[in-house]
Design a protein around this nucleic acid. Sequence first.
DNA 1: TCAAAAGTGTTTCCCCTACACCCATGG
DNA 2: CCATGGGTGTAGGGGAAACACTTTTGA
Lengths: 247, 247
Amino acid sequence: MEDGSPALRRMRAASPTSPQAVELSERHAVAVDVVLFTIQDDSLKALLVKRERLPFRGKWSLPGGFVRRDESVDEAALRELQEETGITTGYLEQLYTFGDLDRDPRGRVITVAYYAVLDWGQFQLKARTKGGAARWFGVNRLPELAFDHRKIVNYALERLRNKVNYTSVAFQLLPKRFTLSELQRAYEVILGTRLDKRNFRKKMLQLGILRDTGEQKVEGRQRPARLYSFTETRVIKLQEKGIIVPF
Amino acid sequence: MEDGSPALRRMRAASPTSPQAVELSERHAVAVDVVLFTIQDDSLKALLVKRERLPFRGKWSLPGGFVRRDESVDEAALRELQEETGITTGYLEQLYTFGDLDRDPRGRVITVAYYAVLDWGQFQLKARTKGGAARWFGVNRLPELAFDHRKIVNYALERLRNKVNYTSVAFQLLPKRFTLSELQRAYEVILGTRLDKRNFRKKMLQLGILRDTGEQKVEGRQRPARLYSFTETRVIKLQEKGIIVPF
DNA sequence: TCAAAAGTGTTTCCCCTACACCCATGG
DNA sequence: CCATGGGTGTAGGGGAAACACTTTTGA
């Protein structure tokens, strides 16, 4: 306030004769943390990494790391995703930036949180061959988490559960070809609710985003199921006002 | 990737014997930029500040400034809001973090964008008495903006237009007591649509969040209008699935 | 008495919801 | 032939949308 307007401060910080004046501003450690979601055994799971050093030694935490000088924040998040799973596909979305002073006992760290939604079939080999300090946890059975990571996971869950209602994120959890029952199970697992089979199928089919591949999936001794594929390549908004849940 | 897992990198960065090891990470200039919205003359306006130094000298930009070492990111945004308008009330929400490498020609700056929604009556005096380098622009008549600020404003507009549908943000643009017509005009101005008067009033009244103050507002030579107040003190979700628009 | 905005109900239609039985296959 | 999940239709209810006239006041 006694400091003048932000415009004034910015001017002071950036003298016109020195294009590097931004270097004089106070600088911060910036990290990214990524909540990786996948579906495994009909359960929504999140990937956690065990900390082997202080602070929070032995506690589970989200995969993450500091943003480097030569990469954008998004690139840092992609890099984390790649390092954890080896994949570059899937859906990655920025969640929120956590900038409180006391988040990290080591000092001030600003974290930009992301969440990712992945098809388990795409990367399970790679994830398994990692150091062993990474594990998938059912989102309803999370252990105690380091830092404010519990808050971040909760926020990611909330966002995912919302987005599933009006976008096609749920398809990112499935392989390219999937049955309607698998799709329904994905919705149920994310939302934690049971959905009506007939209403679900009706709604999905009339959205016009599924292509019947003509193929069938035989599993066990039941009637084979039609395999569908998603017509879009990106995550799209399903409709302007149409909320999918509750069916 | 050849760098090992993020967990490993974090361990390296934070040796257990040195709680300050986070200090060794690469550090970044972090700024906040705030999109201030208000309604004035039946038009949705955003506050812009004229830059008087390079880069972008003479261009309009969002009010903003660097985050200091001793304040949280939220506090920095609140400080900006306070410096621009003198008010500490109103609604302030984090929008998105822009972290591309080339956002700022002076060097790498990560910006955490916020938007605020304010009642014009609360602060017009203070805003007017400022340096004069700040001006309100109708959101459909914005000048060319510095940096990537146009993108930020567009994003803020999108968020605001969404939130108005399922939360009570719109009330933040109005004084404590308001008429239903004023409320409707606020919605129309934000959404850029005309709404049906009868349907609007029906919906609003049956939400149960308006209290009839018993007072009336006389304006001009028309029939006086009932004055209502909002029953809640915070911005709330209006309903789980109920989208307000289109009426 | 006129201009200008405030205030007020009903009908239609569509979408969401609830709900139960037959089908195809492998064992 | 039987167990298992795949696949299908309809009726009822509720909320959104469309729509026009009367009321109150000051000038």
